[in-house]
Simulated scan of single mutants.
Amino acid sequence: MNLPKPYLVRTGLDEILAGLREGDAFPPERELALRFGVARETVRQAVHELLVEGRIERRGRGTVVARPKLVQPLSLKSYTEGAQRMGRTPGRLLVTWENTTVDAELAESLRVSPTKPVMHLERLLLADGVRIGLESTYLPLHRFADLVDDFDPTSSLYAAIRARGVVFGEATERIETVLPSPREAALLETTTAMPMLLLNRRSVDIDDAPIEVVRALYRGDRVAFVATLTDG
């Protein structure tokens, strides 16, 4: 049986990867095309699939085997805690910190008047210095106005919130796949063709008072999410 060339190429690339370790150089497209006896476009498509899956990455003018994806648990834990559990060094870069008004839907989620400002904190999430996510957090200003006095935006926001005596009760999250805007792609140092994981979350405290509304965009080639489910 004659198998399709794209299938044979992809199977061959998987075999090559199985013999390489993180950081090893991945063969260039021209060499792969000669090895498999196919057009470079066929190889290019298979390599693109591996890039999107996060199994290889561009580094300089070449391509190398990528680190495993950062696996984040879906829980009321901070990004810092999730990254550290995987032995990665978390980091954040501040993009925006402002008090601003929001639309009626977001105001309702935070239980504030649409005419009243809320706190907006936008930060890039890093793992071992690599930009993997863009997090936009909205907080009710009447609860957290004093963050401006002592909060370091490169540190854990959840730790700062808990230090104020706030106890997280529960959160509702929705995850979907999207493509980034040109601005988001530039901030995340990727292209608008890179699939993203979009996480929308609303958290409340044990008294059901809103804590935050978050829109977090994660690079699909760098991050995966995991949840633990129980029957009961």
Rank of each mutant, 00 (worst) to 15 (best):
E122C: 09
I206G: 02
R10Y: 15
D14I: 03
T192S: 10
R67N: 09
D221V: 06
R143H: 11
V213N: 04
L17G: 01
P73I: 06
A104D: 07
A185V: 05
L121Q: 00
F26C: 01
T230S: 15
E57N: 01
T172P: 00
H120E: 10
T172Y: 09
G91N: 07
L94T: 11
P90T: 02
T230Q: 14
A171F: 13
P210S: 14
L179D: 03
G19P: 08
A160H: 06
D152P: 02
M194P: 10
P210D: 14
E105V: 11
P27K: 04
A25C: 04
E212L: 12
F151E: 00
R35N: 08
R164G: 03
G37P: 09
D205Q: 09
L34Q: 15
T230V: 14
T63H: 07
A159Q: 09
G60C: 12
R59P: 00
T115N: 14
R92C: 06
R131A: 09
L74G: 03
L198M: 08
Y158G: 02
V223C: 05
R162H: 08
R201T: 04
A107W: 08
R183M: 13
P27I: 11
I206F: 07
D231C: 13
D103K: 10
I211F: 00
Y79N: 01
A224E: 12
T190I: 01
E108P: 10
